[in-house]
Design a protein around this nucleic acid. Structure first.
Lengths: 205, 205
DNA sequence: CGGGATCCCTTAGGATACTG
DNA sequence: CAGTATCCTAAGGGATCCCG
């Protein structure tokens, strides 16, 4: 028995042996946004040591959670279908964790992939379906995302772009995703669309 | 910044800082079954060192996930409402983990609390609601549980007791919870009730 | 006896540098 | 760019001991 095994035969134990190691679910979180290269993962997890990232990627492959897909020359990591089944769990952790998150500490950063998952967590498909299709160019503590909402569909991509409204805010994204729009600066477009954003993205109380 | 922090401001990260440490979610799993004493937790997690259990209990208290309730003389640990919100996540991990669980290895055990959560994971309230109320006395690799199903309600308690049917099986509980009843020995009651059990408890494919 | 605390040792993880 | 290699620290594992 490996030292890291928990010694039990049970689903929870098994799941934790597969993805419960430190950094494991954060790698899954980022891969839920899309396939990523080694360097992109390292950028999204700034404090992960490179040897740990390499070790986790190997383990997650062996566990059948991710796979390497060598496309042309660059190596991409992506979730397997089994790994993608973790999405509701990761979003559930996100919901639960946000509830006890208070003000950001200075050294804490907001990465694009984490912000994308936060937006998915807060997304209200029913509310969105009742509103006109809208695109938002959001700057969250420096990370720029292009957010397109069309009916109950949400699409978030990195980088800037033209949108119906552009706004930016600091790291206090929990406020923004809870309907508190003080501190949001509109830099282009119709400021009234901010309300639509607040209706579309709302973390559970 | 604590060394164990991930350095990100985000819900998933926060959740993992609260309950993502080794053994953390297994303690939560067992407390989902009911309040437990220190020794009971230690019994249910046979490989956890006592200093780690003590440390985790302190951390989970500080995180607002569990609380001590000093009742008469004995100390009980129980989940706070915030901690109880983890139930769907733990059951989700259970579902996901069971999918890749293969045959039990010899040294792996099935504890009563883990088995109770496995039963909750597999429980089909809709199917149960359409069947008569039934009680099952199950022996799973030596751990005895009294399982009472009444409409869409499930109640599992430790220990033996009289039930409509009594059966026992080895550690291959994934088979039993997947409709494969070979290897199940009926020791009392109407063997035809086994089918009802199989309809009531069924892990997702 | 329940609820831990202490000790020692092993191993995983963090920081940094380096290589194909 | 995609990892290895190295060194060191801190967390976890195992056994034992302590205290009310």
């Amino acid at each position: 028995m490996a030292a890291r095994d928990y010694g039990q035969y049970d689903g929870v134990t098994r799941a934790l042996e597969l993805v419960g190691e430190r950094w494991g679910l954060l790698i899954v979180r980022d891969l839920l946004v899309g396939p990523r290269r080694y360097g992109e993962l390292a950028d999204g997890l700034p404090r992960i040591p490179s040897n740990i990232l390499a070790a986790r990627l190997k383990e997650l492959q062996a566990a059948g959670v991710i796979r390497r897909l060598p496309r042309s020359r660059i190596i991409l990591y992506e979730l397997t279908p089994y790994g993608r089944e973790l999405e509701p769990l990761v979003l559930g952790l996100s919901t639960w964790g946000f509830k006890s998150l208070d003000e950001p500490r200075g050294e804490q950063i907001v990465t694009p992939d984490a912000m994308t998952i936060a937006l998915r967590t807060a997304f209200q498909p029913d509310a969105a379906a009742a509103l006109p299709a809208t695109s938002y160019a959001g700057g969250f503590a420096g990370t720029e995302l292009l957010i397109r909402v069309d009916g109950p569909e949400l699409d978030v991509t990195g980088g800037e772009g033209t949108a119906d409204i552009a706004f930016e805010t600091d790291a206090r994204i929990k406020h923004v995703l809870s309907g508190d729009l003080t501190g949001v600066r509109v830099t282009a477009g119709d400021a009234r669309l901010l309300d639509r954003f607040a209706q579309t993205f709302r973390l559970a109380a």
